[in-house]
């Protein structure tokens, strides 16, 4: 085995997840190769540090969690369809309100113009010179 092959096996050697033949080969190699020996020591230290800081999985009531997951699937099945429908309905509502408001504003502007014209014509009947100019 070459250094590159040994390096790929170091993790498994430390964890003792290796067959006897490979184990012997690694041990023979490490005796001779200082680079791989150094790497083995550093990998062992690194794994010790990692193992000490593993965050424990929270304890769970698995029956309850399974029920919650099944309920979640039903919920998502229903609201999965509803969600795009709600988004579409809200968008449509916003569009309609904006459109109605725009129309209302246009009509209001037209109306106010007509009202001004009517006022001018009404005041003209009083023969006010400033107005005729």
């Amino acid at each position: 085995m070459k250094c590159d092959d040994i390096k790929n096996e170091l993790y498994f050697y430390i964890r003792n997840e290796i067959d006897l033949t490979t184990k012997k080969e690694i041990e023979n190699h490490i005796e001779k190769c200082s680079e791989c020996r150094k790497l083995l020591n550093e990998f062992s230290k690194t794994l010790n540090i990692i193992d000490k800081s593993i965050i424990e999985m929270p304890s769970k009531n698995w029956n309850y969690f399974a029920e919650k997951t099944v309920a979640g699937i039903h919920h998502r099945k229903i609201f999965g369809f509803l969600k795009p429908a709600i988004v579409f309905a809200v968008s449509l509502l916003v569009f309609t309100i904006s459109y109605k408001y725009y129309k209302y504003r246009s009509v209001q502007q037209t109306t106010s113009l007509t009202e001004t014209e009517e006022l001018v014509s009404y005041l003209s009947d009083f023969d006010i010179p400033e107005l005729s100019q």
């Binding site: 790929n8 096996e9 170091l10 498994f12 990998f43 690194t46 540090i49 990692i50």
Partner: peptide, 23 residues
């Protein structure tokens, strides 16, 4: 599978460098 082993080595090598001064 060889790629899995190679990635474990690379990960270990990076972790060794990143956690070097921790002790």
């Amino acid at each position: 599978e060889g790629s899995v082993k190679a990635n474990i080595f690379k990960a270990m090598n990076n972790l060794r460098k990143l956690l070097g001064g921790i002790d």
